[in-house]
Design a protein around this nucleic acid. Structure first.
Lengths: 221, 221
DNA sequence: GAAAAAGGTAAAGATTTTGTAAAGATCTAA
DNA sequence: TTAGATCTTTACAAAATCTTTACCTTTTTC
């Protein structure tokens, strides 16, 4: 299920959006101000963001540069073309003006998701000698099979999909929540430790590095 | 250089588009009918397609399903919302209505390219030999990795994003408040000092200058 | 030129984060 | 139901980071 963050200070519009999106099968997160949005994004990673521009606190424009790797559809009443261009250049993925047609919004959302999904399609992920087969749910290192638990598999899959990329603990928890809903930062710590042991046994080195204050990353070298 | 296919039976509009795109540095291919388009696509694979809907022979709608792996921006006078939705669902990447603003069109084209490129594109900021990789959360100087803390990273990112630009202490404190909410001007002073030491070790010179009464700036020279 | 304000650095203390082990809780399959 | 595997919790030590304090230098202001 996809998660969409609805950022709007107008409660009516926000409620309406939430209802529409919910009916469409999306999970919805809400924020009502710029600072609240930053807080929300530091603890969640939605699959898409619907961003109103006129927010109390930080404006939508100010938030835009902080959003990485998540498509943003700007929702606003402002229609000035120069401004529109600027937003798109600054990282927005699309733009829709109020009042908007619900069906068009849903279509534009679908376009964004189709795009992000077309990126990953192969059933195998690999980093160096480490290989993860999504069909058989198996992990091997240099063709030596690894005995890996479900949670460890989910974590490793995330890391291996973004090699050398620091991934926050909250992101990991979010992404593995489907398999392991009760996982906390403490238990994650433990899973990482167990994963390290298993990986070290076959590779001879530590493959998962901590990024202090952020999370973890898989090192390729 | 990117290649864009302009599909329009109206020669004037087509010429205008070609001129605009050419000025922007794109290579342009032309087709004037549906069948011509299919022929063009069987022999070329442009990086993006601007597709008019009302074409002699095969209509734009009929062509859409045959295009795979190339972003398509539909250009049309039709503004009916249902129709728009249908197009987006059928594989169009974006939609722009005639008459359109050239700048907006160029922006939408840029968005499509940014998207297809973002697969391997990494968020990197650089000033001289200093390079900040947002993915891996790493900083290097002349490919020498720097050991940098979270707060120092946040400060450096801010400075490097605005090279030679003085940034006030309060701005810095604001921007790093998510990571380090307790940071005061006193502790900031300390962080800057620590950053300077680390940068001086690899660069041999002081890279962060104080702007008296204001804040700090990163010098490029 | 002297006082006040701002900047610079070092060292120490406080806090936060991380790593691992061990034990308890929960789930799963026979 | 029971054994085995898996997940979570707890506890504690170690490491890294952040803030504070102190003291000194530089710049501004009067």
């Amino acid at each position: 299920m996809k998660t969409i963050a609805v950022i709007d200070d107008d409660v009516h519009i926000g409620d309406m959006l939430e209802e529409v999106l919910h009916k469409e099968g999306y999970h919805v997160l809400r924020a009502y101000s710029g600072t609240e949005t930053m807080y929300l994004l530091s603890n969640n990673s939605p699959d898409l963001i619907l961003l109103d521009l006129m927010l109390p606190g930080l404006s939508g424009e100010a938030i835009l540069p902080h959003v990485k790797d998540i498509p943003v559809i700007v929702v606003s009443a402002k229609i000035d073309v120069d401004h529109k261009v600027e937003l798109l250049m600054n990282g927005a993925s699309d733009y829709i003006t109020k009042p908007f047609d619900t069906k068009e919004l849903l279509a534009r959302i679908a376009v964004q998701f189709r795009k992000t999904e077309s990126v990953r399609q192969i059933g195998m992920l690999s980093v160096g000698k480490l290989l993860l087969n999504e069909q058989s749910h198996e992990v091997t290192f240099d063709s030596t099979p690894l005995k890996i638990t479900k949670t460890e598999y989910a974590i490793l899959k995330l890391l291996i999909a973004n090699p050398d990329h620091a991934i926050s603990k909250s992101t990991i928890l979010d992404r593995i929540a489907f398999d392991t809903p009760d996982c906390t930062e403490d238990s994650l710590k433990q899973h990482i430790s167990n994963l390290r042991v298993k990986l070290r046994e076959v590779s001879g080195k530590n493959m998962i590095e901590a990024v202090w204050g952020i999370g973890y990353k898989l090192v390729t070298d």
